[in-house]
Structures are given as C-alpha cells and as structure tokens.
Design a protein around this nucleic acid. Structure first.
Lengths: 142, 142
DNA sequence: TTCCAAGTTTAGAATAATTCTAAATTAGGA
DNA sequence: TCCTAATTTAGAATTATTCTAAACTTGGAA
C-alpha cells in the first residue's frame, strides 16, 4: 500500500485516490481485466469516476512500463499488471485469458527473406484454445 | 477469372459483380488490405457499393476458409487471401504488414501448468519491428 | 425461357471501445 | 499556504464494424 504509493510517485505519477484504487485493483490481478471491468470496480468506491480517468491511468502506467496491454481479444483491450514479457492464451468459447510464462525467443528467428525487410524488435504469441470449463460444457452438450 | 467464379460457386457463394471485383482485388494480393482499402478500390468500379457488402463478402470468405483475418494491427482488421496458416510482422512506425512463412509449431509447446487449464487449438505469432523504409527515415532524422 | 426462393446489396442507422475536449479540481513541491 | 502542472470529469466525438429492412439478383428448377 505504502509501497504502491511510493513506487508511483517515483515514476512521476501523481497519486490521486482514483488512481490508487486502480493501482490496488490491478496489483497482482491475474484476470486480465478490460477498461470496463476496472471502471465498474472503481465506480463502487468513486461513483463519479469517468472512463477517461481509467484510460488515462492505464495509458500512463503502460507508458511507464508498469503494465502490459493485452490485445489477444479483438473486441477490447485487456490489462495485465505483470510487466514481464510473456504470452497469452484465450478461450475461443468464453474469451477467458491465461498467461503463458515461457521464453520462446530462441526458436522465433525470422526467415532470412523477411529479416531483410524488417528489423524485428519483439514478438508476442497468441494461443487459441478451449478452457477447462468450456471443455466440460462441450461434453455435456454431446 | 473463370476459375475464380467456379471456385466460389462451388463454395456455395453466389457470384455477384461486386463480389467478383472483391475476389479479383484480393487474388494474390500481398498488401494485407483493410476493409476500407477494399471498399475504396471496389467503389471505383461500383460507385454504389456499400461497406456492408465488403464486410459480408469478407466474412463469407473467412467462414469458408478462403481468406485469413489478420489482427496484428489493433486499429483495424486486415485481410490476407493466403489461407495457408502463417505469421505476421508489423512495422511499429508505419503499420506495414509482412508475412512470415515458417512453421514454428514444434517449438510452441505450452508449459504444463497452462496446458492443464487450456486445450490449445492454434496459435499465431505477432512480430513487431521496423521496416526498411522506416529504418531509412530514422537514420535521416539522426 | 421463365420463375422463384434464397441469398445479396444498399443506405443509413446502431453499436461499442476508445479518445478527445475544455472547464473545474487537486496533488505535492516550493 | 500557494501555485502550477497534472488530473478528473461529463459528455461529445471518433472509428471500425455490425445491424436493419427493403429492394434487387443469382442460379437452379420447372
């Protein structure tokens, strides 16, 4: 709590109550919330909070490298407070997102012809699959 | 031309003039056009064509597996008439998209813990980099 | 060749995530 | 305590995409 505040002051971010609420909500959160998820949560404590505040804060945190924008869901961005690079898997049935902590970088060399056209900087793997819950539902249907 | 028509009739798609124009525009196109790119092109020949037609056709083709939706650009979808699975690289400066034809699937095993939670079905790698033109521009600026 | 049902096209409205605006407020260093 | 730069807010704007419902076409069948 104190640490959260100090950490963000040091980053040059003013710590407003709304921001603090967002920081607390994100801290350690493994659910890959969307901006709306965050907005709804913060609204409970600060009923007048606006979407702009949520987006502003998320952008500031992203620019400071504190959070990752997750773009595996075409519908909307999700936010991941784990700034360590990693990959994601999404359930094609329910859109649940999971983390994939494994460094594949050795294997991800670009073929020569395209390496001439582009200087690669980073990469991200999107895995698509079916989560446990949806596998169960599938079975029930059959 | 004749082949394009026959091929799509066989897929159960009615071949209208607008569709044929879209098919011809996409055939062999390596530029990863967006829906708007396609719309603007078709509009030259069919000034009353609507976005709905472009999107309908693209969806039909996608559902038949004839084209791939490319989602590497968060701003908008792009369309790739090469139905063979492959990966993409996007220039972080100008959003130009390139194809990466290499099968990485052997290397992309999921770690055990996440494999218990999700049954993987497919994957797609997004590479981010800087294209030749933008590398040149960068140099000029320095 | 003609007919017709199912599929397609169209203009425009609707949707939804995100960004912008400009005025009011607040954090936090001096 | 003050002050300025950053932040918040409500609401409007933006943008890609989807939806709607009426009019029109396609292509197989009679």
């Amino acid at each position: 709590m104190k640490k959260l505040i100090e950490k963000h002051r040091k980053l040059g971010l003013k710590v407003t109550p709304q921001r603090l609420a967002i920081l607390k909500y994100l801290d350690g959160n493994k659910n890959h919330p969307s901006a709306e998820d965050i907005f709804r949560e913060i609204k409970k404590e600060y009923p007048t909070v606006s979407f702009a505040t949520v987006y502003n804060t998320l952008q500031a945190l992203r620019d400071k490298g504190e959070i990752n924008e997750v773009t595996i869901d075409w519908e909307k961005k999700h936010y991941d407070p784990n700034p360590k690079p990693h990959h994601h898997i999404i359930c094609t049935e329910c859109n649940k997102i999971g983390d994939v902590f494994k460094d594949y970088s050795e294997a991800l060399r670009l073929p020569g012809n395209i390496a001439e056209e582009f200087k690669p900087v980073r990469n991200h793997i999107n895995f698509y699959g079916v989560c446990r819950d949806c596998q169960k539902k599938e079975k029930r249907r059959n």
